[in-house]
Computed example of a mutant assay.
Amino acid sequence: MIWVEPAIVVVKTLILLLGSGITYIAFRAYRNTGAPSLKALGVGFGIVTFGTLLGGIAHQLLAVSLEMGILINSALVAVGLAIVLYSLYLERG
């Protein structure tokens, strides 16, 4: 299974690119509208994207175990998704 780690790097890179794009668009929309929900949405997706980046860097460059890298990623994804959920709640209010 020597292909697994390179595949993880490719998928994490794709997530980083897509997440960065979503974060950028959300913040640009926030600047245009001033809607707090769009700001929270951008922060949430930014944290999700940062979690992917940090988990990957911890494993690849800092010699952290794969399990710990996954834990770091998962914790930040959970926080980011909670903020995304909050942003949707703001829109209702």
Rank of each mutant, 00 (worst) to 15 (best):
residue 53 L to C: 04
residue 66 L to H: 09
residue 56 G to S: 05
residue 6 P to E: 09
residue 13 T to N: 12
residue 27 F to L: 12
residue 7 A to E: 06
residue 18 L to N: 03
residue 75 A to S: 04
residue 80 G to I: 00
residue 17 L to C: 10
residue 82 A to E: 00
residue 71 L to H: 06
residue 36 P to C: 03
residue 31 R to D: 00
residue 77 V to C: 04
residue 55 G to P: 01
residue 70 I to V: 14
residue 22 I to V: 14
residue 72 I to L: 13
residue 61 L to F: 11
residue 80 G to N: 03
residue 55 G to A: 01
residue 20 S to Q: 08
residue 10 V to M: 10
residue 1 M to N: 08
residue 16 L to E: 00
residue 78 A to V: 04
residue 48 V to A: 14
residue 53 L to R: 01
residue 68 M to N: 03
residue 66 L to N: 10
residue 12 K to C: 11
residue 14 L to Q: 07
residue 55 G to K: 01
residue 52 T to V: 10
residue 8 I to T: 03
residue 71 L to C: 08
residue 41 L to H: 00
residue 69 G to A: 14
residue 60 Q to C: 05
residue 33 T to S: 12
residue 84 V to R: 11
residue 75 A to N: 10
residue 47 I to A: 07
residue 23 T to K: 14
residue 82 A to R: 05
residue 79 V to P: 05
residue 2 I to D: 12
residue 5 E to T: 14
residue 75 A to R: 07
residue 7 A to I: 06
residue 51 G to N: 08
residue 72 I to M: 12
residue 8 I to R: 15
residue 77 V to G: 10
residue 9 V to G: 12
residue 63 A to K: 13
residue 84 V to D: 07
residue 82 A to S: 05
residue 56 G to C: 03
residue 23 T to L: 08
residue 64 V to A: 13
residue 63 A to M: 09
residue 3 W to S: 13
residue 26 A to H: 08
residue 13 T to M: 04
residue 91 E to A: 14
residue 27 F to D: 03
residue 28 R to V: 04
residue 82 A to V: 01
residue 90 L to C: 12
residue 91 E to R: 15
residue 47 I to G: 08
residue 22 I to S: 08
residue 14 L to V: 13
residue 55 G to Q: 03
residue 1 M to W: 09
residue 63 A to W: 07
residue 78 A to N: 02
residue 55 G to I: 01
residue 74 S to L: 12
residue 62 L to I: 05
residue 4 V to Q: 11
residue 57 I to R: 13
residue 75 A to G: 04
residue 12 K to G: 13
residue 15 I to L: 14
residue 58 A to H: 04
residue 31 R to A: 09
residue 17 L to W: 08
residue 39 K to N: 09
residue 15 I to D: 10
residue 81 L to F: 09
residue 59 H to S: 15
residue 51 G to F: 04
residue 75 A to W: 00
residue 65 S to F: 00
residue 90 L to I: 05
residue 19 G to F: 01
residue 52 T to Y: 06
residue 70 I to A: 15
residue 53 L to V: 07
residue 26 A to T: 06
residue 68 M to K: 02
residue 44 G to E: 00
residue 24 Y to I: 12
residue 65 S to N: 06
residue 59 H to Q: 13
residue 46 G to I: 01
